[in-house]
Amino acid sequence: MSEILTKSRARNVFYGGSIFFVVVFVALTVQSHYYITNKSTAGMELTDEVVLGKHVWERHSCINCHTLHGEGAYFAPELGNVMTRWGAMDDPELAYEILDGWMKAQPSGIEGRRQMPYFEITDEEMRGLAEFLRWADQTDTQNWPPNDAG
């Protein structure tokens, strides 16, 4: 092996191969980018309200307790399909009302129960957050999660 695979050959295989895989990866990423914008998330318009909701989601770092499409912390329930779970997927008003009621009841203060903090969120932001969660829910995630439990 030592005659065929010299150090310089190993180095060249490393450089050449890596460039090849980077090119393939970039090409697939570009295709995926278009697939996401035109297909998998195209079921609902990406409105200013949804964007506002995403900023609310980020400002309070919900991802460090919850998961969203399975990514995040594992301390609190999956939220990528929460609107389906609540039966509010097709009803923006109901989505807002349930979310608003839930968020304002926190923290529960029940001893031995995981606590969700209380967040200062305006009505407009709460509507945005509800729309953001509906928008996330309509994404084509290849049928993940397996059931409504998330």
Partner: peptide, 15 residues
């Protein structure tokens, strides 16, 4: 590099 794909199963990326 292409192993990144194991994070692209369920986030809205192609099958």
């Amino acid at each position: 590099i292409l192993g990144t794909g194991h994070h692209f199963f369920w986030i809205g990326t192609p099958s």
